Each structure stands twice: as structure tokens, then as C-alpha cells.
Simulated scan of single mutants.
Amino acid sequence: MAFNWPRGVLALALAMAAGTAMADDKKTLAIVVKGLDNPFFEQINLGCQKWQKENPDSGYTCLYTGPASSADEAGQVQVVDDLLTRGVGAIAISPSNAPAMGNLIKRRNPDIPVMTIDADFVEADRGMRTTYLGTDNYLMGVKMAEHAARLKPEGGTVCLQLGNVAADNINARAAGFRDTIAGAKGTDRLTGQGGWTEIDGCPVFTNDQVDLANQQMADTFTANPDLDAFILIGGWAQFAPQAYAQVTDQVMDKLKSGELLIIAGDTLPPQLEALKAGRSHVQVGQRPFEMGYRAPTVMIQLIEGKAVDDPLFTGLDECTQQNADSCLAQ
């Protein structure tokens, strides 16, 4: 009789099985993402696969893994712990809970080279890794703020949608947005600076769950009919295109008139389609494919003891309704 595994348990089991099969080889280059359920991270996987295809005789294998769910912070820590125990050549981590992951690396003090990718450790723990490869997340928040100020120079009411409370990359984006709007570093909340005020009940935290992200948007629009801007610091809601379309249907008139502004992170294909359809005004995109493609080369450099710059930024793409067909880096 066949046993039907719960979807999340099965995906985690498969991910861990992949790690078990490959991680005994010290030539394994492991990339550990926040969750296998997130299409953003699948772009990192595709970059990893391209590197593997182009370097068949390198002697190294690029392993893409992580917990089944992006909300499973403890599961990600366990995946990394297991990889360190089994032994890999090097490891690149996108920490979901930065303090928890930093504590693990500090406790294990591995001889294996460790870097971060996409998301970094908190500043106090950055000595635990050699380099960070990915987005300048503070700058990403700056760019979102610049577009908000350009489109609504008088400001207005705003709600920020964040991810996990302890995700360093998301928090850096929020800081970049608030500091730029306020014109002052260390702004914890917008209370009228630059004409912008964060509404009660915001920011909202998705815990990287796309269904929750869409529900939060719908609830915010319903409870705040005069809201001026909704800022998706990450692209979560847009990763479920049908649900996002239903949510934005209720405010399409406001979006088209510019009464309500939506700025979102990331530029995956469904997100650009949403932009072209007028369901957002700006998408500030990262380059996850490039992260996955470059990470194995950086890890080999670390294994060989070569000097590597820190950080290694992969750039941003700023897409608007006017340049949506040509905005992405070639």
C-alpha cells in the first residue's frame, strides 16, 4: 500500500536525500536556499545547473538544496548542520533566520569555506563567512524609495510588506527605503518624513508565504481605501499570478489612475507580465540566475585559498511600465 507523504515533508525528504547522496564528496559545492517552494530560488538553481553543464570536467558538483518551505527556518538550519557534518567542499547559504544561522556556524566553527548568497548574516556574524554574493539590498530599498518619490512627490500613506522578521536582506531593503524617504539613516518608521506615513498594522510579514502575502494585500486594501502606496519589499504575492491578479482587480481603477502605487521587488516573468498589465508600477529586480551561476566559481576560489572580494554585488534591474520590454540585463 502506497503512503501519501504530505507535500512539505516529501519535498524536504527529497532535498535531504540529495544532500546525503552527494555531500560525502569533498568536491561538492552546496548552495542552500531559504526554501525549495520559492520560484525566485529556482532561478539560482538554474544558474547552478548552467555552471555544471559548462564545467563538466571541473571535478566539482554544484548541489542546490534547502528546506521544502521558505517558512521553515529551523529546517534550513538542520540542512546546513547536516551538510557540515557529512562534509562538502564549500557551502553558500541564503539564511532565512540570519542570527540562528550565524549561531550555527559560530558553534560548529567549520573548516569548510562558508559564504553567503542572496541574504547575508547579521553584521556581528559576518566574520563567520568569507564573502557575500548577491544584491546590495540596502541599495534595492533606496531604488524603491526613489521611484516612490518620483511617482508621488507629495508622499502619502504607505504599507511595507516584509518577509521573515529575522531575514537580513529584507530588513536591509526596508532600511534603505525608510532612510531614503526620510533623508536620515536609522529611520525605524515613517511618521511624516518626506510626506510619507506608514499606516497602522504595517509593516506586514509574509514569512515568505505567497498565499499569506496576497491575503495581507487584500486585507490592507479593504481596510485602507485611501492608501497611497503598497511596497512589496520582496515579490511574494506576485509569485502566485492568479491570486495576485484577483487581489489587484479590486484596486485596478486606482492603479491605473496612479491614486494607488505598487512597487515590488524582483523581475521574474510573471512579475513583468503583471507590470505590463498595470498591476504594479515599478519592479526593482535582483539577478538570482547570476548568483547561482557565479557561486560555484567563488566557492572553488575559496577552497583554493584565493583572495575574494567582499561583498560581490550582482546588480539591479529597474523596470517600469515604460521600459518593461527592455529593462532586464542582457
Rank of each mutant, 00 (worst) to 15 (best):
N4A: 15
N4Q: 15
W5I: 06
G8K: 12
A11T: 13
D25S: 12
V33S: 06
K34N: 09
Q43W: 11
Q43C: 12
K50R: 15
Q52W: 10
N55R: 01
N55E: 02
Y60G: 00
C62F: 02
Y64S: 02
S69A: 14
S69Q: 13
D72V: 03
E73R: 12
R86V: 08
R86A: 13
G89L: 08
I91D: 01
I91T: 03
P110K: 09
I117S: 07
D118F: 04
F121R: 06
V122R: 07
M128F: 13
T130A: 14
T130E: 12
T131K: 02
L133T: 00
N137T: 06
Y138L: 05
K143F: 08
K143R: 15
H147V: 07
A148S: 10
A149F: 02
G156C: 07
V158F: 03
L162A: 09
V165S: 12
A166L: 12
A167V: 11
D168K: 13
D179N: 13
D179Y: 03
T180P: 02
I181R: 01
A184F: 04
A184E: 14
T187K: 11
L190D: 04
G195F: 06
W196P: 02
W196N: 00
T197P: 07
E198V: 07
C202A: 08
V204R: 05
F205V: 03
A218H: 05
A223F: 10
A229E: 00
F230S: 01
W236A: 07
P241N: 04
P241F: 05
Y244I: 00
V247C: 02
K254H: 10
I262Y: 05
A264K: 03
L268S: 09
P269Y: 08
A274N: 03
A277C: 04
A277P: 01
V282Q: 06
V284P: 00
E290Y: 12
G292W: 03
Y293M: 03
P296R: 05
V298P: 08
M299F: 06
A307I: 11
D309I: 12
P311F: 08
L312H: 00
F313E: 05
G315V: 10
L316W: 01
D325R: 04
Q330F: 09
